[in-house]
Design a protein around this nucleic acid. Structure first.
Lengths: 147, 147
DNA sequence: CCTATCTCAGAATAACTGAAATGC
DNA sequence: CGCATTTCAGTTTTTCTGAGATAG
């Protein structure tokens, strides 16, 4: 019963989430906030809707996350001249520094999580998880903020 | 950036969660409700606190889930004569039928998720995920519903 | 004009923290 | 008294509706 893929998947994700929450709390960030900040840092100027898709949340939820990041002065929004519908989010200098300060710790946590595996096993695990997700996604819909 | 264990873990769990939500909606259940119902079915009479630990949620959240299952007539609560503090949750006949009706579909979804893997690979994946979670849990705290 | 996408606003649901009451 | 279970209160987060604005 506890040897189902669904159970261990939930178990692993919960363990990672808890470790990330503990580490990020010292930086005044939540895990969803960090995920959004990391996506902005990797993509430059990006819309809230696109950010929502990459973070597996709804656009409304991402809007709330962005509002908190705005209030903390970590990101800023500007109208895209090429498409006045979208408000592109980008990092402030403060946000850039905060992101870099967190990335080292988060990367270390993820590396510790797979530290019991060899390099080949780590690559196999990641590739296998991606394939499992894709197998399920082709026959069904995707996450709330993805399409 | 999208080849990190954290990303693919979230991706896989999101895909499974969406597929389960879609399947369970036709039975009038949510995924957390099914998880609780399944744990009750596997354990017989069980306390809300223990149920919370097995479902990776807080006791308060499990209390709300149980309240919904009670209102739907799928479970019932009785005082444990040996310890009058605990309210043990057990399945009603209706809950037993509803659980069995869902289990076939949920099992099929989980099997489809790993259908691209051989039997040995499936066992290795599950065992590896369990070890990854344990590696992270020994140095940090566990889920929200554990202490 | 019509369709799709992005964003915002209000209400409802769900989840967590903190703390209190109860019984072992 | 220490510990575990349950429950209450307050807050935050997330989602669900529905709407308005703009691009193609």
């Amino acid at each position: 019963m506890d040897d189902r893929i669904g159970y261990v998947l939930k178990q692993a994700q919960q363990a990672l989430r808890t470790a990330m929450d503990d580490a990020l709390r010292r930086h005044g960030l939540t895990t969803p906030q960090y995920a959004a900040l990391d996506a902005v840092g990797a993509s430059g100027a990006i819309s809230g809707a696109e950010l929502a898709r990459r973070s597996f949340v709804t656009p409304q939820t991402m809007n709330g996350i962005i509002a908190n990041l705005l209030a903390a002065g970590l990101v800023e929004r500007h109208v895209n001249p090429a498409d006045t519908r979208v408000l592109r989010v980008s990092l402030t200098p403060t946000g850039q520094r905060r992101l870099e300060a967190c990335q080292h710790e988060i990367d270390a946590i993820q590396e510790r999580m797979v530290s019991g595996l060899g390099p080949d096993e780590q690559r196999w695990l990641i590739e296998t998880l991606r394939r499992c997700a894709e197998t399920l996604t082709v026959s069904f819909g995707e996450g709330p903020g993805s399409m």
